[in-house]
């Protein structure tokens, strides 16, 4: 074996090693980040369970007999934003998935987390301002990172914004 092929072998081992290490880091750290986020979401959603959240245009109280909308003119726009990043492992597995097509569960999970986080932030803003209901909720997804690295190596992430109108119910 001459020194040239040893060099090439070394390079191959190095490349595969770095790739494998990134995959392992992505898998472990990504799973940890996801688990922590989901636990935190579940806890905050539980705390916000008393909030009435709807996507109708009016100010519904119908499902709650004996209640009416507080007519004192207190209503306000509330918003929540969240940008959630993929991890190396998810990006890698999803790239493989693209070859054969089908459902991309990993990215579905990212969008789900971003939407829940945006919702929780919007509801928290409403509650902090003394409201107990949010109606006319609208979600928008934004593409804010695909252009960021100049198209060379896009950051895989999802950005979601939730907006709604916070109001108060009487007799709640």
């Amino acid at each position: 074996m001459n020194s040239d092929s040893i060099g090439m072998l070394f390079q191959l081992v190095f490349t595969v090693g770095v790739g494998g290490a990134l995959l392992a880091i992505g898998l472990l750290a990504g799973r940890w980040a996801e688990r922590r986020h989901l636990a935190s979401l579940a806890q905050r959603e539980e705390e916000l369970r008393a909030m009435l959240l709807t996507d109708v245009r009016g100010f519904p109280v119908a499902a709650h007999p004996g209640q009416s909308v507080d007519p004192s003119g207190h209503a306000r726009l509330v918003t929540g934003e969240a940008v959630i990043s993929s991890d190396y492992f998810k990006t890698f597995v999803s790239a493989l998935r693209k070859i054969v097509g089908g459902e991309m569960k990993n990215y579905q999970g990212l969008l789900d987390r971003a939407r829940r986080e945006a919702t929780v932030r919007m509801l928290s803003e409403a509650r902090a301002a003394g409201f107990d209901s949010v109606c006319n909720v609208r979600y928008a997804g934004y593409d804010i990172t695909s252009g960021i690295s100049g198209g060379k190596k896009p950051v895989v992430s999802v950005a979601v914004q939730a907006i709604g109108t916070a109001y108060r119910r009487r007799g709640a």
């Binding site: 986020h37 918003t79 969240a82 990043s85 991890d87 804010i144 990172t145 914004q161």
Partner: peptide
């Protein structure tokens, strides 16, 4: 922020810098 996002893209999690960007812009 781009640099931090590049790192976050390996380990996953929220891109707080970009969330702030969105919030400020809004």
């Amino acid at each position: 922020r781009d640099f931090a996002a590049g790192l976050k893209n390996i380990v996953g999690g929220e891109l707080k810098g970009y969330t702030e960007l969105l919030t400020e812009a809004r």
